[in-house]
Design a protein around this nucleic acid. Structure first.
Lengths: 103, 103
DNA sequence: ATTTCAGATAAGTATTTGCTTATGTGTCGT
DNA sequence: ACGACACATAAGCAAATACTTATCTGAAAT
């Protein structure tokens, strides 16, 4: 599972798709816009992201809506937490993030 | 750079090496112990981890000591922070981590 | 100086991966 | 019922990847 996540994120196209989804769930066709990628390629990438638990799908008629799966993010977070000893002193992004979550 | 990091972590052997280093810096030979991996393979993996900024080396005579590079960890952290909106409510590991760092 | 040891590099190979084109499946509009 | 549409799947292929064996570099020990 952890292996699937990192393998999925190892591809730049897949990270781009994931990033797009992070700013709003979309169906496969909408995701293709401005991406120079064939329909089957997109379908295959989404399948990989889905198998990794990074993304989940929701059938809507003949469309399939994709969205970021928080579980995938959580897995990366817990993986990263194992290396806390090596986190640099000032990781402002994560620091403020966690502060936010405390509210 | 970000691409190098994810590509480096996509390999399970490389993640195992990285994990070993996280519990104490070692030279390449020491890392091989209990790992069923040839000397060139280890050398190549370490080169990939190093190029990704996940690990750094320090020559010590005819040994080369490897250690986790906090910069690599930081990169993953900032990447992950971009998806803060999708972090699940209870990411205890990271939450307590950041609390610790505030002391 | 010569040998030995730690490690890097070179070259070759089998496997994996990301793409392609072609076709299949299921849903919507008419 | 039919065609159009959204998407998945199949099969094939070129490129990337992780390994192998062989060799090279450089430092330590004798």
């Amino acid at each position: 599972m952890e292996n699937d996540i990192f393998k999925a994120l190892a591809d730049p196209t897949r990270r781009a798709i994931f990033e797009k989804l992070a700013s709003g769930s979309q169906n496969a066709s909408a995701l293709r816009e401005g991406m120079t990628i064939s329909q089957p390629a997109m379908s295959q990438h989404l399948a990989v992201l889905r198998a990794a638990g990074l993304v989940r799908e929701e059938r809507q008629g003949r469309f399939v809506n994709y969205e970021v799966d928080p579980d995938g993010i959580a897995h990366i977070g817990t993986w990263l937490a194992r290396y806390r000893a090596y986190w640099p002193q000032r990781m402002d992004a994560l620091r403020t993030l966690l502060k936010d979550m405390d509210q």
